[in-house]
Design a binder for these strands. Structure first.
Length: 880
RNA sequence: GGAUGCUUAGCUCAGCGGUAGAGCACUACCUUCACACGGUAGGGGUCACAGGUUCGAGUCCUGUAGCAUCCACCA
C-alpha cells in the first residue's frame, strides 16, 4: 500500500464492483421493512453542481445507512423535463442554426426536445454515479415518459372532476418574451430607476382646460389608455363631493367616473388612483367590485394592441410612454415628474418584464387543497427538519392563491381538455373518453379541439412521489413504499415543490407523500457568497472530486452539514478532511503491516488487556453516537464524532499504546491485541461507509472484512453490546492520558530534548489505583518516561506535578540543569509581569484612553490577559 | 412594509441553563520504524450591545444595532 491514498485508482474500480454485484438493485419481493426516498429529479438541462452533490450525498448517507441496517431501501431516481428552461435552451440551440420553432411546427420541435433529452439527460446520471449515488439506476423515471404521462392525465382528470381544477379568465403574470403565463413564484423583483408622473384628469363639467381636475400619480402612464375610473377613499376630505362625478380621460376623451373604494391609501401618490383592471392585480379586484370593464391594450408580445388608437399600435410600452408624456406635457396636464427607484417584476427564466395580463387559463384551487396540506404538518404527520421551516410553510400555505397551471409553451404535458364547437369543455384521459362525454352532452358526435396549452412543470413534479411508484396502479412499490420516509431538499423549493406535493398527494392518494422533510442548507463559497458564474467563485464538484477524491468531498459535505441556512465550502476546509481520509488510510495500513486482520470469530467479551477493553468501549460508544446522529439528520455530528474517535482516540492514543505490544515487547497480549485492532478499525470503516463509501469499501476488502463477491455496502451495520465492566476503564485510561500529557508538557517547558529519557516516580497507591503496571511500557512509549517504583536518593533533582490529586515526580535527565531552567522560567515570568504592569499603567491613563481607538484598548486587554495566563502557568510549575 | 434567521478564537462554524469547543490558520520543537496530507507542546475568546429572569446566562426573556434571506410593494 502507498503512503497516501490514491483515490483516482480506486474510485472507478469500486464503482465497477458495485455495478457487477448489482449491489443497489431494488428488490420488490423483499420482506424487510421498507425505507424510501424519492430523489428530487434534476433537470435534463443540468450538470452536477455542488448543491446537487450536497443533496445527493445526504440522501446517499441515509440510504446506505438504512441498507446496512437491514431495510429494503428504495431510492427512486428520476429526471425532470423542466418545461420552460428546456424549451428555451432547445430554442436557443435551434436559433443557432437559424431555425425558429414556429417554422418547424410543434411536432418537429418536440422531436428536437426529445433529441436533446437523449443527449443531455444521461450526463447528470453519470455524474451521480461518480458521486457514489447508490440508487437503482435501472429504475430511473422521467417526468415526461409514457407512464408518467398516463399518471399526470389521470391526476388532472380527477382534480377536474373533483372541482379543484377550473378554467377562468383572470389576470395572470405574463411573460411577453415567452408569450406564456407563468406562476408568481417564477418572478424576481428587481429595483430599477423610474419616474412617477403626476397627471391631471380634468372634470367633465368644467371648461375645457379649466382649473378643476383630479391629479393621479402613476409610473406607467401608457396604461391610462385602458383606464376605466379613478378611485378615491370614501373618507378622503380632499375629494369629498367629487365621488360620482365624471372625468374626461385625456388623449382618449373617454368619460370615466370617480368612484370610492376602501382599498385606496390616502397617503400614497395623490390619494387618487387610476383604475386599470386589465393591467393591475389590485385594479382588477376594484373593477370586479364596481363592475367595471377590463380593457386589454397589450398584445401577447407586450406591445400596444389594436385596442388603442392607431398612432400607438405596435409600439413598445416604453415608446408609447414617451409619446404619451410628450402629448400630455403639451396639453399642460403633467403636473410633475419625480425620479424614483421602484421594484419591477421580471421573469426568472426568460428575463422579460412580467405583465399582468388578462387571459383564459387553467387554475388549481390551491386554497381549498391547502386545508388538508396544512393539517398534515400541523398534526405532525409530516415533520420538517429543522422544525423552523414549518413556519415558512405555514405562512405561505395560509396565504396561498390559486395556482395557474397552464403554460402557452410546447414542451410539457399537454392539458387533457378538449373543446366542443361551442366552447364546451371536456376533460378526459384520452380521445375516446372525451368523445363519449361529448356525445352524451350534444347527443351526437362532434369534432373536438384539443387544448394546446401544457402544464406547469411543477404540476408533474408535484405528483412525483406516487407516479414514480406505479400509481394509478396498485403496485407493490406504491403499497409498501408510499408514504416515502424522507424528502431531502433545499429551502428554495419549499413553495415550488414540497408544498405542492403535500397538497396534491394528500388529495389524490389520501395519504401524505413523505414523513420527514429534511431541508438542507444552500452551498456558498468560503466567504459565504452565493456561487455564481459571474462572480467566478463556482466550485465544480467534479473538479473537487479530481483533486481531493469523492470520499473527501462527501466527508466534507457531511461535516459541514450543520443545521443552518448556508454551507460555506472552501478548498482549505476540504483539504483538512482529505487529510482525515489519508489518516484512515494510513491507520489501516499500519494495522495491516502488523499482521492484524478482521476476525469474524473475535469475541470482545473475552478481551483482557485494559487498553483493548478501552478502545472497544470507545468504538461501541461511537457506533451508537453515529446511529443517533444519522437518525436525527445530524450528519455533521456523525462525521465529527468519527473524525474525533478515529484520529483523536484511536490513532493518537490506542495505536501508540499497542505499538510496544505489536513490536513484540509483551508477547502474552499480542494475539488479543491484533484481533482487537483489526476489529476496531473494521468498525470505523463500517460506520464511515455511508459517508465515504469508496475508500471504506477498498479497506474492508484489504482487512478481510469482505470477500471477493461481497460488498461493504450490503454488509450489515455493526451491533455490539458493551460487556459489563468495560466502561469503568474510561476514568483509569483517561488518567493515564492526562499523566502522559502532563509529563510531555513539563518536558516542553523545561526544554528537555525529545530523545532524552525521563524517570517518573508514582506512589505505590496510585500505581495500584491506575493499574500502572500494565501501562509502564505505554508511558515509556508516549512520554519517553519510565516508572520507578522505589524512591531514589533525595539529592536527585525532581519536579513534581499533580494529576487529579496524584503526585507524579519527574526526575530530570542529568544533562538538564533544573535550577537553570527554573531560573529561566522565573525570568520569563518577571518580564511578563513588568510588561503587563506597563500595559496596566497605560490602560489606567486617561490621556491614553481618550486618544486610543477602541480596538487598540481591546488589543492591550487581550495581550494583558495572555500574559497573565502565562504567568499563572509558570507559577504553577514552579510552586507545586 | 411583513416575516425568519444570524452576530462565539485570525477565518468558517458547532454549542442553546452549570469549568468557553472544532476544523483550518498561527508559534516552538521533532524527518521517532502508519501517516510531514504527520507528531508533541503551546498561543489566541468584553460568546454584537443594553436591560431582565435565575444560586448560576453564549445558552431563557425584552429591547437596540448591524448583516443576511424570503414574502409583499408598479398610486
Amino acid at each position: 500500500m502507498d503512503k497516501t491514498f490514491d483515490h483516482k485508482s480506486i474510485e472507478k474500480k469500486i464503482a465497477d464492483r458495485w455495478n457487477k454485484l448489482e449491489a443497489f438493485k431494488f428488490n420488490p419481493k423483499s420482506n424487510n421493512p421498507p425505507y424510501t426516498i424519492i430523489l428530487p429529479p434534476p433537470n435534463i438541462t443540468g450538470s452536477l453542481h455542488l448543491g446537487h452533490s450536497l443533496c445527493y450525498t445526504i440522501q446517499d448517507i441515509l440510504i446506505r445507512y438504512k441498507r446496512m441496517k437491514g431495510f429494503n431501501v428504495l431510492w427512486q431516481l428520476g429526471l425532470d423535463h423542466a418545461g420552460i428552461v428546456t424549451q428555451l435552451l432547445v430554442e436557443k440551440e435551434l436559433a443557432g442554426r437559424g431555425v425558429d420553432r414556429h417554422d418547424i411546427g410543434r411536432e418537429k420541435f418536440i422531436e428536437a426536445v426529445w433529441n436533446w433529452k437523449e443527449r443531455s439527460g444521461g450526463t447528470i446520471l453519470n455524474q451521480m454515479q461518480r458521486l457514489g449515488v447508490s440508487g437503482d439506476f435501472s429504475r430511473v423515471c422521467f417526468t415526461m415518459d409514457e407512464q408518467r404521462q398516463v399518471a399526470v392525465r389521470k391526476a388532472f382528470v380527477k382534480l377536474y372532476n373533483d372541482g379543484l381544477i377550473y378554467r377562468a379568465k383572470r389576470l395572470v403574470n405574463w411573460d411577453s418574451k415567452l408569450k406564456s403565463a407563468i406562476s408568481d413564484l417564477e418572478i424576481v423583483n428587481k429595483e430599477v430607476n423610474g419616474s412617477m408622473w403626476y397627471i391631471k384628469y380634468p372634470l367633465v363639467d368644467d371648461d375645457p382646460g379649466g382649473e378643476n381636475s383630479i391629479t393621479i400619480a402613476t409610473t406607467r402612464p401608457e396604461t391610462m389608455l385602458a383606464d376605466v375610473a379613478v378611485a378615491v377613499h370614501p373618507s378622503d376630505a380632499r375629494y369629498k363631493g367629487l365621488v360620482g362625478k365624471l372625468l374626461r380621460l385625456p388623449l382618449t376623451d373617454k368619460i370615466i367616473p370617480i368612484i370610492a373604494d376602501n382599498y385606496i391609501d390616502q397617503e400614497k401618490g395623490s390619494g387618487a388612483l387610476k383604475v386599470t383592471p386589465a393591467h393591475d392585480f389590485n385594479d382588477f379586484e376594484i373593477g370586479r367590485r364596481h363592475d367595471l370593464e377590463a380593457i386589454n391594450i397589450l398584445a401577447p408580445d407586450g406591445r400596444m394592441s389594436d385596442n388603442v388608437a392607431a398612432e400607438y399600435r405596435g409600439l413598445t410600452q416604453e415608446q408609447a410612454r414617451v409619446l404619451i408624456i410628450e402629448r400630455l406635457t403639451n396639453m399642460g396636464l403633467v403636473e410633475k415628474e419625480e425620479k424614483i427607484k421602484h421594484f419591477v417584476p421580471y421573469a426568472d427564466r426568460s428575463g422579460a418584464r412580467v405583465e399582468p395580463y388578462l387571459t383564459d387559463q387553467w387554475f388549481l384551487d390551491a386554497p381549498k387543497l391547502a386545508t388538508e396540506a396544512l393539517r398534515a404538518v400541523e398534526d405532525g404527520e409530516i415533520r420538517f427538519v429543522p422544525k423552523n421551516w414549518e413556519n415558512t410553510y405555514f405562512d405561505w400555505m395560509r396565504n396561498i392563491k390559486p395556482w395557474c397551471i397552464s403554460r402557452q409553451i410546447w414542451w410539457g404535458h399537454q392539458i387533457p381538455a378538449r373543446y366542443g364547437p361551442d366552447g364546451e369543455i371536456f376533460v378526459a384521459d384520452c380521445d375516446e373518453e372525451a368523445q363519449t362525454l361529448a356525445k352524451k352532452h350534444y347527443g351526437h358526435n362532434v369534432e373536438l379541439k384539443r387544448d394546446e396549452d401544457v402544464l406547469d412543470t411543477w404540476f408533474s413534479s408535484g405528483l412525483w412521489t406516487f407516479t414514480t411508484l406505479g400509481w394509478p396502479n396498485e403496485t407493490t412499490e406504491f403499497k409498501k413504499h408510499h408514504p416515502t420516509d424522507a424528502l431531502v431538499t433545499g429551502f428554495d423549493i419549499i413553495f415550488f415543490w414540497v408544498a405542492r406535493m403535500i397538497m396534491l398527494t394528500t388529495h389524490i392518494c389520501k395519504r401524505i407523500p413523505f414523513k420527514d422533510v429534511y431541508i438542507h442548507a444552500i452551498v456558498r463559497d468560503e466567504k459565504g457568497q452565493k456561487m455564481s458564474k459571474s462572480k467566478g467563485n463556482v466550485l465544480d464538484p467534479l473538479d473537487l472530486i479530481d483533486e481531493f477524491g469523492v470520499d473527501s468531498l462527501r466527508f466534507s459535505i457531511a461535516a459541514l452539514c450543520a443545521p443552518s441556512r448556508n454551507i460555506n465550502m472552501g478548498k482549505e476546509r476540504m483539504a483538512g478532511y482529505r487529510n482525515f481520509i489519508t489518516k484512515l488510510w494510513n491507520a489501516t495500513r499500519f494495522i495491516l503491516m502488523n499482521g492484524c486482520r478482521y476476525d469474524n470469530h473475535f469475541d470482545i467479551s473475552a478481551v483482557k488487556l485494559s487498553a483493548n477493553k478501552w478502545i472497544i468501549a470507545n468504538v461501541i460508544n461511537l457506533i451508537s453516537n453515529v446511529e443517533s446522529a444519522i437518525e436525527n439528520y445530524r450528519f455533521d455530528e456523525a462525521a465529527k464524532s468519527i473524525y474525533q474517535s478515529l484520529w483523536g482516540t484511536f490513532c493518537d492514543w490506542y495505536l501508540e499504546f499497542i505499538k510496544p505490544i505489536l513490536s513484540g515487547k509483551c508477547q502474552e497480549n499480542i494475539s488479543e491485541t491484533k484481533s482487537t485492532a483489526g476489529w476496531a478499525i473494521a468498525q470505523f470503516i463500517k460506520v464511515l461507509h455511508p459517508i465515504s463509501p469508496f475508500i471504506t469499501e477498498e479497506l474492508a476488502e484489504a482487512l478481510g472484512l469482505t470477500g471477493n463477491n461481497s460488498s461493504l455496502s450490503t454488509s450489515s451495520w455493526p451491533c455490539y453490546k458493551l460487556p459489563k465492566d468495560f466502561d469503568r476503564l474510561q476514568g483509569e485510561v483517561d488518567w493515564i492520558c492526562q499523566a502522559i500529557t502532563a509529563v510531555r508538557s513539563l518536558r516542553s517547558d523545561f526544554n528537555v530534548q525529545p530523545s532524552a529519557e525521563l524517570k517518573i516516580i508514582i506512589s505505590e497507591n496510585d500505581c495500584k489505583k491506575h493499574s500502572l503496571d500494565e501501562y509502564a511500557t505505554f508511558i515509556y512509549r508516549l512520554a519517553k518516561a519510565s516508572i520507578l517504583y522505589e524512591s531514589p536518593e533525595d539529592d536527585i533533582a525532581s519536579v513534581p506535578i499533580i494529576v487529579e490529586g496524584c503526585v507524579i515526580r519527574v526526575i530530570m535527565d542529568k544533562s538538564i540543569d533544573i535550577n537553570k531552567e527554573k531560573a529561566r522560567l522565573q525570568a520569563e515570568m518577571e518580564k511578563l509581569k513588568i510588561d503587563s504592569l506597563s500595559i496596566k499603567t497605560r490602560l489606567s491613563n486617561p490621556d491614553f484612553l481618550a486618544k486610543a481607538a477602541e480596538t487598540v484598548i481591546f488589543d492591550h486587554k487581550k495581550r494583558l490577559s495572555n500574559m497573565e495566563s502565562r504567568v499563572d502557568r509558570i507559577n504553577e510549575l514552579l510552586n507545586v
